[in-house]
Structure formats: structure tokens, C-alpha cells
């Protein structure tokens, strides 16, 4: 698994590639650790995710809670079919903001932030 992180004004954009599972959580936790008053909003690009397990879901939930603590938002962008299936199967798709692209996610955040 690889996680690419870009920081923008008040926004973290993280792209997750490969198997998003328990073995990659150390990398993903870098995203969670970055969330702060200065960087309260997060976009997670899931377009290149091949698989997600419960550890990945709990990582997303931790990010959600962290953004809420800092009065920010998290949006899941362009979820791959593998990511979409697990999110819908667990009904976590009802909890996160969703967008078809990173750009659409940026728009969503700017409208709600």
C-alpha cells in the first residue's frame, strides 16, 4: 500500500493506492496525525484502492473523528469499486461525505467549511 499526501491551505489530500488493510495502517496514520486546527479538512482519494478491510475502515473513522474535533470535514473521493462495495456493505457510505472526484470533493469542502 502507498499513501501520497499533499497539503494545501486548510486541506490534506491523501491518495491511497493498493491494498488498504491492517499492514498499511502505519502509513495511513500519518494522515490522521496531520489533522489540526490549521489542517482540519481531509480528502481521501480512493480511486486506486484494490481492497479494504476493517482496519482501513477504522482508520477512516479515526480520521472522521479527528476532523470533527477540529471543526473540519472529510470527503471520500472517487471510490474504486472495491472501496465502494465495502463502504456500502457496512453502511459507512452514509457517514462520510462522498464525491466523484478530488475536484468535486474540494468544492464540497469549500461549500461546507
Amino acid at each position: 500500500m502507498r499513501v501520497h499526501i499533499n497539503q494545501e491551505p486548510r486541506l490534506i489530500v491523501a491518495t491511497v493506492e493498493g491494498r488498504f488493510d491492517v499492514h498499511g495502517m502505519d502509513q495511513f496514520n500519518q494522515v490522521v496525525d496531520l489533522v489540526s486546527d490549521e489542517l482540519p479538512n481531509v480528502i481521501i482519494d480512493l480511486s486506486a484502492v484494490e481492497f479494504m478491510d476493517s482496519s482501513a475502515l477504522s482508520g477512516l473513522v479515526r480520521t472522521l473523528k479527528r476532523t470533527m474535533m477540529h471543526h473540519g470535514w472529510i470527503v471520500l473521493a472517487n471510490a474504486s469499486s472495491a472501496a465502494r462495495i465495502i463502504l456500502e456493505l457496512t453502511r459507512l457510505d452514509e457517514v462520510f461525505g462522498r464525491a466523484e472526484s478530488v475536484e468535486a470533493a474540494r468544492t464540497l469542502i469549500s461549500q461546507t467549511a
Binding site: L57, S58, V61, L64, L89, R91, L92
Partner: peptide, 9 residues
């Protein structure tokens, strides 16, 4: 199918 999201959310 599930009736709600996982616990802890």
C-alpha cells in the same frame, strides 16, 4: 443487509 453502520461511529 446491515441496519446501521458499525459501532464506534
Amino acid at each position: 443487509r446491515p441496519t446501521c453502520p458499525p459501532l464506534g461511529v
